[in-house]
Amino acid sequence: MAPLRLAVIIGSTRERRVGETIGRRFAEEAMRRDDLAVTVVDLAAYEFPGSYPAEPTAAIRSFVQDINRAEAFVVVTPEYNHSFPASLKQAIDYAYDEWQAKPVGFVSYGCRSTGLHAVDGLRTVFTALHAVTVRDTVAFDLLNAHSEQAECRDRLRQDCRLLLDELWWWGMTLREGRAARPYVN
């Protein structure tokens, strides 16, 4: 059985963003598994237009192709003002059918809330796109980001494993479902 194609989407495009480090570390953890084929989709690498164009640009087409190839997603998101970044919403909106009947998990970060307000908003968006969001998340409190306690590292590793296990199960189940019958919305 072919490994599940997982795209780890880095959702912040700000300079000096923490999300790139968090996203790439999560991707490295996921790459340790033989049942996943992991790619990193960094929104900062795409030259998206400032406004939604009448015709897709080359960057938009490339992003949509990257989303289409994936069978499951992990969205790495910060929380800005109790929500997710506009750059992430813009990118999500460029694809539509490509999200359907695929699972989405979340790695979030922020101060105190650990980004969970952003995740709540993203769950609503992905539900509207007919994607399946998984229950468990990996969340980082940036106020305690430099904690090197073994207990904290172990908990995060366990959270990553749980999220990846859920994504794999949903991803494989939905892969089989899409193969048996096309998704209808």
Rank of each mutant, 00 (worst) to 15 (best):
L4V: 12
R5Q: 14
E15H: 09
E15Q: 12
R16V: 05
R17H: 05
V18A: 13
T21V: 10
R24T: 13
R24P: 01
R25Q: 12
F26Q: 07
F26W: 05
D34M: 02
D34N: 13
V41W: 03
E47T: 12
F48R: 06
G50A: 07
T57K: 02
I60P: 08
S62G: 10
F73Q: 03
V75M: 06
T77D: 00
E79C: 09
H82D: 00
I92E: 08
D93S: 12
Y94C: 08
A95V: 06
W99I: 05
Q100D: 00
K102C: 08
V104Y: 01
F106T: 03
S108Q: 04
R112W: 03
S113C: 03
L116E: 14
H117Q: 08
H117C: 07
H117K: 13
R123W: 02
T124V: 15
A128M: 11
L129P: 05
H130V: 01
V132I: 15
V134F: 07
F140H: 13
D141W: 11
N144D: 12
N144C: 04
A145K: 13
S147H: 03
S147N: 15
A150D: 15
E151Q: 14
D154H: 13
L156D: 03
L156I: 15
D159T: 11
L163D: 09
L164W: 06
W169E: 14
G171C: 08
T173F: 00
L174Y: 06
E176P: 03
R181V: 10
R181G: 01
R181N: 07
Y183I: 01
V184D: 10
V184F: 06
